[in-house]
């Protein structure tokens, strides 16, 4: 009787999962007249490989550091190293990811063949790192707020939860308008509350604000979901525990710290696991709002997997990103489990 469902799970979940591992070791394309070849870890080497280059300021003949008009030292162009196959074969066709200043004016340049992937990786981690605690914390705050015996509290619960039932695609479209640089609602509201002091910002068009804007929107959409999970955890705590705390004369913070929080440990694990998984699969927001731009500041792993695997028909490249994404999710959920198990 379990057979039909198991077969479906096997064909459409487990099989493609293992295929992703296999394909990531080949040069498979969606449609190609050429035979598929086994290429080993090449895809991963291309994506994850970095090399380091240290550049020194240019010197004039007298041995002084050359300065530009603003008094900053002039460095040789990284391009001179990366497009010069004869002298620097190890840097050939690589691109600058970021720079670090060292002592004596030397600069360490980190080079990679696939800067877009590395940016997508960094953005996705940053997104998860910010969204998980913020969303879990706000959701707990809302749950505590909603858990009060107040008249009409269910109305507020209904409202807070409402964004959850709206598609992320719709939400992203809507917020594109809210974040608009010229006619956006957010700029309007900010200006109103700051009495005109606030300078309008092109939230999604700016490399420094685009990812935070998407983070804020994602929290807005998802926080109601986790509020309800916290709430169900809160409601399993027997009232007698609070009664005892009250008789002992505990303050509100003490009650939370010593009665509420310890009972929520299992809920906390669940909330964190779900949020982490959702955060790592950041996709519709990017697809609808920014398509990775401006200047790759909102690239995400899933978005890149789709761009490569589907739009550029490079199945193996897309699969390699999927494998990395899965390993990330797996190691983080194992890590979370380990952290919480230790305390029990």
């Amino acid at each position: 009787m379990a057979l039909p469902a198991c077969l479906l799970v096997f064909t459409f979940l487990i099989l493609p999962f293992f295929m992703a591992f296999g394909l990531s070791l080949t040069n498979q394309r969606l449609v190609s007249p050429n035979p598929t070849e086994f290429v080993g870890l090449d895809n991963f080497k291309k994506m994850l490989g970095v090399s380091f280059l240290i550049i020194e300021p240019e010197m004039d003949e007298a041995g002084h550091i050359k300065l530009d008009n603003e008094g900053n030292p002039i460095y040789p162009r990284v391009r001179n190293f990366t497009r010069n196959q004869e002298d620097f074969p190890q840097f050939y066709k690589k691109r600058e990811w970021f720079q670090l200043g060292l002592q004596d004016g030397k600069v360490l340049v980190v080079l990679s063949q696939d800067v877009v992937f590395l940016k997508a990786l960094a953005n996705t981690m940053l997104f998860a790192l910010v969204v998980c605690p913020v969303q879990a914390g706000l959701a707990l705050f809302l749950a505590l707020l909603i858990n009060q015996p107040l008249r009409g509290i269910n109305i507020f619960r209904t409202i807070y939860f409402a964004p959850v039932v709206i598609s992320m695609v719709v939400v992203s479209m809507l917020w594109r308008f809210i974040y608009d640089g010229q006619n956006g609602l957010l700029n309007t509201l900010m200006q109103m509350f700051s009495f005109g002091l606030f300078e309008p910002i092109d939230w999604l068009g700016n490399t420094s604000t685009a990812l935070p804007a998407i983070m804020a929107m994602s929290v807005w959409q998802g926080v109601g979901f986790h509020m309800v999970i916290w709430l169900s955890g809160l409601q399993t705590i027997p009232l007698s525990h609070y009664e005892v705390a009250r008789i002992e004369g505990a303050t509100r913070w003490q009650t939370f710290r010593y009665v509420t929080w310890p009972s929520l440990r299992n809920t906390a694990i669940l909330v964190m696991v779900i949020i982490t998984m959702q955060a790592f699969t950041l996709y519709p927001q990017i697809q609808v709002m920014t398509r990775g731009g401006p200047l790759d500041s909102t690239q995400s792993l899933v978005f890149q997997a789709v761009i490569r695997g589907y739009e550029k028909q490079d199945i193996s490249g897309g699969s390699a990103i999927s494998v990395i994404l899965f390993l990330l999710v797996l190691s983080i959920s194992l890590f979370q489990r380990y952290l919480t198990r230790e305390k029990n």
Partner: peptide, 10 residues
């Protein structure tokens, strides 16, 4: 999202 690409191939 991690299996979408191979699933497409299937």
């Amino acid at each position: 999202e991690t299996i979408a690409v191979p699933l497409l191939l299937i």
